[in-house]
Amino acid sequence: MSAAANSAAYWRIAGMSYLKYANACAEIVRGALKEPHLSKARARDAVYFKATKYVKGSPEAAVITEVIPAEIPK
């Protein structure tokens, strides 16, 4: 088994989904970039949406998920 496969098992055990893992990796890769590419790529960290769970046709409280890209140190 390759190293990637082993680590794959670990993040599953830690309760991450593949997409979460992939996005976490992507964020780190983006963070490793140098300017001028960094600020352009950092904008792609942003996540925003509002989720409402429905139970039997009636909505529960809405949850807002927001990821604001980290500020770039100058």
Partner: peptide, 30 residues
Amino acid sequence: GELFANVLVDATKQPLTFGTASALAEQVAK
């Protein structure tokens, strides 16, 4: 309406990123 499990709105408020799409997809995959 009684078939609704989750309603996900306002994802278009910001420019689309793969991060947003995969956060929505995670709910769908779940």
